[in-house]
Simulated assay, not measured.
Amino acid sequence: MSFIAPLLQLFVSFFKIGIISFGGGYAMIPLIEREIIEGRGWLTEAQFLDIIAVAEMTPGPIAVNSATYIGYQTEGILGAITATLGVVTPSFIAMVILAYVICKTQHLLVVKGALKAIVSGVVALIGFATIKIAISTGLFEVRGGLNIDYVTVTIALAAFALLRYTKLHPVLILIGFGFLGIIIY
């Protein structure tokens, strides 16, 4: 049972980091550093920097990746699981509470208005990202008037139609259009 105490310390440390961190994973890095190096002495500065570099390169949120790697470095696979659970549990609890509050208050006019505005904001963010990507990939060029690459627009519309009107998996569509791009371009 002596292995439980270090796992509990890992969970509590990353739970604290998860509960007091706002602003995403990069904002958590100084908190993780303070807790793990200065507070607990689990890693050296060099080890921590290596872990951050690996966490940045791997898919997923940097805070979760860092917690997983630090947990693994200190307590093996159980440490990785424990640290990861510790850092994501506060967000999970907050989302459950928020979902409960929304479900209980969704009939209120103010909540309906807020949700409608949030959805509108999300649509605007997705639309903005789509336009930026379209411009950066050459789909549209805005300098000196609007220039349109009609072949690329046709491919984009075909991909959209396949996503909308068929049951093809999006990955298959991406792979298929990747091969089409190799042939055309």
Score class of each variant (00 low, 15 high):
T166Y: 06
A27G: 10
A114E: 08
I4R: 08
L163G: 15
L98M: 15
E141D: 02
S91M: 13
L49P: 09
L157K: 03
Y185D: 01
R34K: 14
W42L: 06
L125N: 09
Y150S: 05
I37N: 02
V111Y: 05
V12S: 00
I19N: 10
Q47A: 14
T74C: 11
A117P: 00
V153K: 03
T84H: 12
E141G: 12
F128T: 06
Y150M: 11
G178R: 04
D50R: 02
I131E: 13
I118N: 06
N147D: 03
H107T: 13
E56P: 12
E45C: 07
I62V: 15
I37T: 05
F48V: 08
L180Y: 13
V122N: 05
V153Y: 06
A124V: 10
A158W: 01
L78K: 08
L162H: 11
V110W: 14
T130K: 01
F48T: 04
I51P: 11
T130V: 06
K112Q: 15
V119K: 14
V101H: 14
H107W: 05
A124N: 07
E35L: 04
D50Y: 05
T58H: 09
R143K: 04
I4L: 12
S21K: 06
S136Y: 01
T137V: 07
G145R: 07
M95C: 08
Y72E: 00
G86W: 14
H107G: 15
T105M: 14
G181N: 07
G138R: 04
L139A: 01
K112W: 09
